[in-house]
Amino acid sequence: MAKYIAKRTVAAVVTLLALITIVFFLVRLMPGEPFTNPKLTPEIKANMIAYYGFDKPLPVQYVEYLKNLLHGDFGFSMKYTNRTVNDIIGETFPFSADLGIRALCMAVSIGLVLGIVAARNRGNGIDFFCVIVAILGTSIPDFIMGAILQYFFGIKWGLLPVALYKGIEYTILPATALAFYTIASVSRLMRASMLEVVQQDYIKTAKSKGLSDFRVTVKHQIRNAIMPVITLMGPMVASVLTGTFVVESIFAVPGMGKYYVDSVNNNDYSMILGMTVFYGAFLILCNLIVDILYGVVDPRIRIGKK
């Protein structure tokens, strides 16, 4: 296992480097420039280009970027001219992560329960109810869901704050809006997976050896059925924790999602790269954890052993 993790860590670094390189050159292919004020004159643009070192050849810029990156320095944003990317990520990530963790916890716990309950009551009313909840979650775009939640709970009934992120009561609506889609995918996947597993021989064995229904479900069925859900979790954790543009902008959460999208729209090169590296590293880490979890949760898979 240790050897496997070491190998994967090396691979992760190589992957990250590849990601940085690709994105570094891809962003330069994007149409437009980082300096977009309609009033910018060519002379001022030249000054700004020199200020950010864009007048140097691209390979030189690339090497310099990597050097700075080794010191953990993402450089200055080009849109928010006196703020560093490190500063912006440091300020916004805690909000996105906080919101993401809440949403994820809600989504996974509710999703798994719904999936399990639906599978165990296959074909009857409870199953149908669970399926409908799941479908509703997947079938309403997040910006509509967010706006509707805000409209009813915030404005019409005045139960919860409309926006901002200043206390626990403020987190409920955005976390719910964010969780909805995930609840749906987790529960549906779990239901399908449970039904898949229930036909397996080991379940029949467990049943026929007289284990209680509860123990069969918990010990054998769920443990095996959860595998596909875990696969799904890797990228899900990464994307949910690093912020979501729509929910954050509807509920005015000062998180990363807005910057991630805006940086691309503004061609803010250093910000795009900083966000990408951060997100990429996070994603690779999540996927690594998922792969290791595979081995832990499913005894049949022993990764790294031939």
Partner: peptide, 10 residues
Amino acid sequence: DVIYGIPSLI
């Protein structure tokens, strides 16, 4: 992993 990491907007 690399493709996942590239912002899909780009």
